[in-house]
């Protein structure tokens, strides 16, 4: 190794060190700590009773109705909102791609939901669906309290998520659309493909990797849903998400032992999801980002 090469390695590590150390200290270390805590009976309200109990906390969590309910709620919210976002995102992206005059305006408007604070978005929709303050019941001629019933509460939550995040999906997909060469679509047209065939047989396959990346990020993000549920129902009407369960155990009830078991389990779920996407659908994220 020449003098300059060695110096280059050293400089590279030196420049990356602060970021890497920060990331390790604030994620890996607490994660290990959570693993450790999850092996204890440890309730901050009764600190004296702290005691090593092995995997009992996990057994308690996995044996509880609440966990499974929250898991199925979370999966439902994730699947429903990501599916709607993908379809709607495609529609929006196509509109932006085709709109000649309003393209900039549409793009700017879509950035508003992206930029707005989730809590504010959740509040706005909560007030909109509220029977006393809202305009939606008046608009539709309905009476009911949307957030007071499980089904309609899910509808409001999912619709808020969709509103907030479709723009991200649409902007990614639009960028993907612009990567499809026009000449290819012209060629397909000459070859006799109609608009629908062109979309499904040329555009869509070429956008596969962009779609997969967008889906991966959105799925993992939706799976962590917390703000919207917290603001709109706080988990009542049986709408608790996993993050809400974790928050309640850790921060509301200060049960660090049990709560940490929930944390670790959520982490494992996310890991599994990421693995499914990356292995199962063959997304190679490191490849695409390499210089």
């Amino acid at each position: 190794m020449s003098r300059r090469t060695a110096a280059e390695h050293r400089l590279g590590w030196l420049l990356c060190a602060p970021a890497v150390i920060a990331m390790l200290l604030v994620t890996a270390w607490p994660m290990l700590y959570a693993l450790w805590l999850s092996m204890f009976r440890y309730d901050l309200r009764f600190p004296a009773e702290r005691e090593f109990i092995g995997f009992d906390n996990y057994l308690a969590v996995l044996g509880s109705e609440v966990w499974w309910q929250a898991l199925s709620n979370t999966v439902f919210i994730t699947v429903a909102s990501v599916a709607v976002e993908l379809v709607l995102g495609f529609v929006f992206a196509l509109i932006m791609h085709h709109a000649i005059i309003g393209r900039r305006l549409v793009r700017t408007s879509l950035l508003v939901p992206y930029g707005i604070i989730t809590v504010v978005a959740a509040m706005s929709w909560r007030f909109a669906f509220d029977p006393t303050t809202g305009f939606i019941n008046a608009l539709l001629g309905l009476e009911g309290a949307w957030l007071a019933e499980r089904g309609s509460a899910f509808f409001v939550i999912i619709q808020t998520e969709v509103w907030k995040t479709t723009s991200f999906m649409a902007l990614l997909l639009l960028a993907g659309l612009t990567l499809v060469p026009d000449d290819l679509l012209r060629a397909a047209r000459v070859d006799g493909a109609d608009a629908v065939q062109r979309f499904f047989r040329v555009t869509l396959p070429l956008m596969r990797s962009v779609i997969m990346v967008a889906l991966l990020f959105r799925t993992l993000d939706a799976f962590r849903i917390f703000d919207t549920v917290f603001v709109q129902t706080r988990g009542s009407q049986n709408t608790e998400s996993l993050s809400i369960v974790g928050y309640n155990a850790l921060i509301t009830r200060l049960n660090l032992g049990l709560g940490s078991a929930v944390s670790v389990l959520i982490f494992l779920c996310v890991l599994a999801l990421a693995a499914i996407y990356i292995k199962g659908f063959g997304i190679d994220l490191s490849q695409r980002k390499e210089p």
Partner: peptide, 17 residues
Amino acid sequence: LSIAMFPPVSIIGPLFN
């Protein structure tokens, strides 16, 4: 990348403590 996918709720307990 893995931190971008990391669920924050998993570490609020330890961080809190």
